[in-house]
Design a protein around this nucleic acid. Structure first.
Length: 407
RNA sequence: GGGGGAAUUCCAGAGUGGCCAAAUGGGCCAGACUGUAAAUCUGGUGGCUCUGCCUUCGCAGGUUCGAAUCCUGCUUCCCCCA
């Protein structure tokens, strides 16, 4: 395997990367790797705490794939032990729930399946950090802890914030960055990928590597991908994410909801097109650009034709107000009908479109409820609706169903 | 071990005896506008057999004609000192 020139590698690596520390060492490492024909070991750690891999995760994962394509060695760390602590990064509270070892392992397997959609797992090394942490004796742990001072830990941004805010920091959380850094020592990483919030751990890893007389890793940090709200980071708990296992159409709908302002970031971090092409797209109509964005990303996880179809369907159903192609059918018992009809508010609840009668009344009172293929507005909550073969019901733009009579 | 503070409707956060289903902001929902973006405007945001009724302000009791507000006990959480 021969490597392409350092400058070319750098250009690829720098794309969509917020910070490389220390920047100047990267070229040196790449040059040395090229001279000696030795792939760099590129580390990425994930804690198997959840199961849905979303686009936010794919940012560093895509970067790994780029490294793989450049001929370097991907090293994935499954943080089955760090997961027992919970990453304190970006959290102002300690994680409420602690996972059991079994849950963590099940998640890990699931995670790898999904990660395999982005990177080439057949060429990657996969380690579980429990493989080494599980074997450590208490005295070894003490020795490890002896390398870091509390003052150093407190310089970490999120700990500092929590100190100021007078929220608790638990002792085991302090171990998190140390564990993460130790992973780098064990697997002898040359480069570690992650979000910008990982800076502290990345630097700590350098210290520990130096302490062990190992070459020091370089941190390559991606910006945090913001979620659908365009403000907060994409995350499961915030419900503002696009999962890579979602259907093409669901993904498309979500892409179209994204604020215009984040399109550039999405293009840069989630697609491979050149910066010039991005500028060209953004110069055109934002809606067109957004559709292209959606298609490009969806195409990475589904077929291009599926992506195309999803875009067309969106245009039809949302852009042109056509009836949805997939309408869930809800059966309503005939025993609830009086002369083949039923009160509107009650029907909305029975159909599952509204959680409570009060909610249904509200929807109707505000003109957000419709019925029939022509989407006639329901006027009053006690309006009697005759149920004939497959009556359509809508509440707002997003909730709808077709009613069938059943017993 | 000692001292102090706090628990309110999705979140933050007012409310210290009746005018409280509970201010305000955020979020969310619906409507208008639109490119189902943003911005803006309007309305809504405990439940119900809905001009009224019922259940809510950590839990359990109590005082009062009347309690989110007062008292007692309990639980949980935070901070400080050691």
């Amino acid at each position: 395997m021969s490597f392409i020139p350092v400058e070319e590698q750098l250009a690829i690596i720098r794309r969509g990367v917020e910070k490389i520390v220390p920047e100047n060492e990267l070229a040196t490492k790449l040059a040395k790797s090229r001279e000696t024909n030795t792939p760099l070991r590129v580390k990425y750690g994930i804690d198997p705490t959840g199961i849905d891999v979303h686009l936010g995760h794919t940012v560093p994962l895509r970067k790994i794939r780029q490294f793989q394509e450049l001929g370097h060695q991907a090293v994935i760390i499954i943080g089955n032990y760090t997961a027992l602590v919970g990453d304190p990064s970006g959290r102002d509270q300690a994680r409420a729930k602690r996972l059991t070892a079994e849950e963590v392992e099940a998640n890990a397997v699931d995670y790898l399946n999904q990660v395999g959609k982005v990177i080439d797992l057949s060429k990657a090394e996969v380690h579980r950090n429990g493989d080494w942490f599980g074997l450590m004796s208490f005295s070894e742990i003490l020795q490890l802890c002896g390398k870091v001072t509390i003052a150093q830990l407190l310089t970490r941004d999120d700990f500092a914030k929590r100190m100021t805010a007078e929220t608790p920091i638990f002792l085991h959380e302090c171990l998190y960055p140390i564990m993460q850094a130790w992973d780098s020592v064990v697997i002898k990483s040359d480069i570690e990928l992650g979000g910008t919030e990982q800076l502290y751990s990345f630097m700590l890893a350098r210290d520990l590597q130096a302490d062990q007389k190992l070459p020091q890793q370089i941190g390559v940090m991606s910006p945090i991908l913001v979620g659908l709200d365009g403000v907060r980071r994409m995350g499961k708990s915030l419900g503002n994410y696009i999962g890579i296992s979602e259907t093409p159409y669901d993904m498309m709908k979500k892409f179209m909801q994204v604020p215009d302002t984040v399109m550039r970031m999405y293009f840069e971090l989630l697609t491979d097109i050149s910066l010039t092409e991005i500028d060209a797209l953004l110069a055109g109509h934002p809606k067109v650009a957004k559709i292209s964005l959606g298609k490009m990303v969806i195409g990475q996880y589904h077929s291009l034709s599926d992506a195309e179809a999803a875009a067309n369907r969106w245009q039809m159903e949302v852009g042109e107000g056509a009836l949805p192609t997939e309408i869930p059918i809800v059966k309503v018992s005939s025993s609830k009908l009086t002369d083949g009809a039923i009160q509107a508010a009650r029907l909305l609840v029975d159909a599952g479109l509204c959680p409570t009668t009060s909610d249904a009344r509200r929807a109707i009172a505000q003109g957000g409820a419709y019925y029939g293929d022509a989407k006639t507005r329901i006027e009053t909550h006690d309006q009697a609706l005759s149920i004939v073969g497959g009556l359509l019901l809508f509440v707002g733009k997003k909730k709808f169903c077709r009613i069938e009579i059943g017993d």
